[in-house]
């Protein structure tokens, strides 16, 4: 168990700023997820924490100790590589055993730990194969197992489930979380799958071109994104700019947007202010005498809901509904309930 303090970390790759003045505190035993578009610096951050990349500026503290200059082999971290990085000449068992041998864990203990991880990741029948005899998903699980078996105080995952089928992914996700809790590991987890991030994390960090957009618990991040980027990245959001109208009552603010007037109990500020706001597609309530309205331009059935693209005065947005009786070309009316209007920081 260890806390990680990242202080004003910057990384330049010959002029290209991969990370800029990034500060972040990870608590002991926390499960923190990094979320962000491809190329925003997630792998770079993990590699700096584990020691492979030397930061241009800034410091990394593990348990209060500055490890910025400590080599990777001397840091109590384990990284699960995005590229797997399995040792091609070693069998699955030997790959799993590698770090334990390095750490001089007694043989009996090694055997137990490996058997345990192999069972949890469903690698039992593969133990004596070489990496090139495994499927992509199996290789990925070996790479994951190789890091998990170490039970390091800090464990770093770089998209460890990207190659697994949906079912296996759910199952392995639970195992990761269980191992992490059981051994109280501090974990940083990189994923592209926002559903996965929401389901697993204690807190989520949203990164955008090498800088932190927002750090928060999944619930708060979803309910109260600070920027349009975060709102749209976590789940879907219809983002609009609007102007604050005279208040209706002291507790109800009215905002004029390109698709009509929205009412909310959230403090939108003084009359005339330009603001950015958003609402989630699933929060719209279709209702023939709704205050807002538009024309359905396309529809996609998703199983437990239907995705509608709607247009009002040429402005497109999205609505999700459980109703199945809406068709392309229909004109619909709907309401956006006051509490689901989210006010954002203006900077996009």
């Amino acid at each position: 168990m260890a806390a990680i303090n990242i202080q004003k970390l910057s990384k330049d790759f010959s002029g290209f700023k991969a990370l800029t003045e990034l500060s972040l505190d990870v608590r002991e035993g926390e499960f923190l997820t990094l979320l962000g578009p491809s190329g925003c610096g997630k792998t770079t951050l993990l590699k700096i924490i584990s020691g492979f990349i030397e930061p241009t500026k800034g410091h990394i503290l593990l348990n209060g100790k500055d490890v910025t200059k400590v080599p990777p082999e001397a840091r109590d971290t384990a990284l699960c590589f995005q590229s797997y990085a399995l040792f091609p000449h070693l069998s699955v068992r030997e790959n799993l055993e590698f770090g334990l041998r390095q750490k001089k864990v007694p043989a009996l203990d090694r055997k137990d730990r490996i058997a345990d991880v192999a069972e949890k990741l469903g690698l039992g029948p593969q133990m004596d194969k070489l990496p090139n005899q495994l499927s992509g998903g199996q290789q990925q699980r070996v790479s994951l197992g190789r890091a998990l078996v170490m039970r390091p105080s800090v464990i770093l995952f770089d998209e460890p489930l990207s190659n697994l089928d949906a079912k296996l992914r759910d199952q392995v996700r639970l195992e990761i979380r269980r191992i992490q809790k059981d051994y109280k590991l501090t974990a940083i987890y990189v994923t592209h799958d926002q559903a996965e991030a929401l389901a697993m994390s204690d807190r989520i960090v949203v990164l955008k071109s090498g800088q932190i957009e927002q750090v928060d618990t999944p619930e708060r991040l979803y309910a109260a994104p600070r920027t349009g980027f975060v709102a749209d990245f976590i789940g879907n959001a219809n983002v609009f700019t609007g102007r604050v109208l005279p208040q209706k009552t002291p507790t109800i603010w009215r905002i004029e947007t390109p698709i009509g007037i929205l009412e909310t109990g959230n403090n939108a500020g003084t009359e005339g202010a330009e603001i950015t706001l958003c609402w989630r597609p699933e929060n719209a309530e279709i209702n023939d005498d709704g205050a807002l309205g538009g024309t359905v331009t396309s529809k996609a059935f998703q199983g437990h809901f239907t995705d509608l693209m709607v247009e009002t005065k040429g402005v497109p947005y999205r609505i999700q509904t459980s109703r199945t009786d809406v068709n392309e070309g229909d004109t619909i009316g709907f309401n956006v309930p006051g509490p689901s209007v989210i006010l954002l920081e203006n900077a996009q």
């Binding site: 492979f52 990777p72 590698f98």
Partner: peptide, 18 residues
């Protein structure tokens, strides 16, 4: 030998000789 493979070994505690 890919860099990641050598890095992985380092990460798991292997020094230069190992």
């Amino acid at each position: 030998i890919s860099d990641d493979v050598l890095d992985a070994a380092r990460d798991l505690g292997a020094g230069s000789w190992a």
